[in-house]
């Protein structure tokens, strides 16, 4: 099954009530699949007039207490940033999927990881955070939909799945039925004021600075809990590792292969794959910094996650970077070659 279709199918199984989207390569299969399948399950699917409208339809549906979702690719996600900021400000849960392509601007429809900063540092305005899940397989494209919706509802906050054009388009085996969707009570939803409760209103507006700061601090407290409890990662061959790759999504798959190749050559390297890009698995990286001679962040961008790796290890070990741009995908051999070059330079210094 295609990654995008697995994600779409998972959305139905995870109890997504409504999907609003707009066509853009390389994620249009999500909209197409759901346009075909959602009506069979009496769910709402709508092709909006723009990504701006999509995210605001999600805002309306999420505010009414429904599980709502949208998906797009990089340029479209840029258009949604306003809405994402409002969703976070108004504490509305929803799932946003970015099938990352290379940029900036129209860029190319080939895969990229250039939206890391936008996704993890808050592409929209104001102080907010959002859990960002980075699948590296078609199976995870499906699994993270369940996880994403649950985390969104748990924290009343938007959650993003940051995939890329390759994971979205590739075909792999995928199993469903592993997860059950959880239903959350949403007494805050705008469904019509009953006589027995106060009115519900959804807003991100707190015009008095005292009240706004209070709201900010409430959000920050929530983000702190996320940061402390929701960091997820996978480790490959780190037990005896002298060196460490740090990579997510598509580049982590290539690095996994590079780990095998390097180990055949006798280089003891491991891989740490962040599953959540925010919160970032900084604590584990700091521990590993005491073990390895250096780390190497491998990304399909000009060097974005590497900044978080450096922040995490805080100078305890050197951090190098290797990246390809513009939709170009490095081979495992290319990465091993880079690794060997860096090892050589590292030991000469």
């Amino acid at each position: 099954m295609k990654g995008n279709e697995a994600l779409a199918k998972a959305a139905i199984e995870a109890g997504c009530d409504a999907y609003f989207g707009y066509p853009i390569t390389p994620q249009s299969e999500v909209l197409e699949y759901l346009a075909r399948e959602m009506p069979k399950h009496d769910r709402i699917v709508l092709q909006a007039e723009s990504e701006v409208a999509s995210i605001n339809m999600v805002y309306g549906a999420a505010g009414a207490g429904f599980r709502a979702m949208t998906s797009s690719s990089s340029p479209g996600i840029s258009l949604m940033q306003e809405g994402i900021s409002y969703l976070a400000g108004a504490e509305l849960p929803c799932l946003i999927v970015n099938v990352n392509r290379a940029g900036p601007g129209l860029g190319t429809i080939q895969p990229g990881q250039g939206d890391y900063f936008q996704a993890t540092k808050g592409g929209g305005h104001g102080d907010y955070r959002m859990i960002v899940l980075a699948p590296s397989s078609v199976q995870e494209m499906a699994d993270f939909v369940f996880l994403g919706f649950d985390l969104a509802d748990k924290y009343r906050n938007p959650v993003m799945i940051l995939s890329d054009g390759a994971i979205g388009q590739m075909m792999e085996k995928v199993t469903f039925g592993k997860f059950k969707s959880t239903r959350y009570e949403k007494p805050w939803a705008t469904v019509g004021k009953s006589a027995t409760r106060e009115r519900n209103y959804i807003t991100s507006l707190h015009i008095q600075p005292e009240k706004m700061e209070k709201h900010n601090l409430k959000l920050e407290a929530k983000f702190r809990v996320m940061k402390e409890t929701e960091a997820r990662f996978e480790e490959i061959s780190t037990g005896d590792a002298e060196y460490l790759f740090v990579a997510y999504g598509l580049s982590s798959r290539i690095c996994h292969k590079a780990v095998d190749l390097a180990r055949e050559k006798g280089i003891r390297i491991g891989l740490l794959r962040p599953i959540t890009l925010w919160p970032f698995p900084a604590e584990r990286l700091l521990q590993l910094a005491g073990q390895v001679k250096f780390m190497m962040s491998v990304e399909l961008n000009a060097g974005q996650m590497v900044e978080d790796v450096k922040l995490a290890v805080n100078g305890k070990t050197p951090v190098y970077f290797y990246g390809r741009l513009g939709g170009m995908i490095p081979t495992p051999e290319e990465i091993v070659h880079q690794l060997e070059t860096v090892i050589h330079e590292h030991h000469e210094n």
């Binding site: 409504a18 609003f20 605001n56 309306g60 999420a62 505010g63 809405g83 009115r199």
Partner: peptide, 19 residues
């Protein structure tokens, strides 16, 4: 019950609610 929309987006927000 009311929802505060972003500037200009009320009709899209209302679409999400009404659908």
């Amino acid at each position: 019950d009311m929802t505060e929309a972003a500037h200009g987006r009320a009709a899209a927000v209302a679409t999400g609610i009404k659908r």
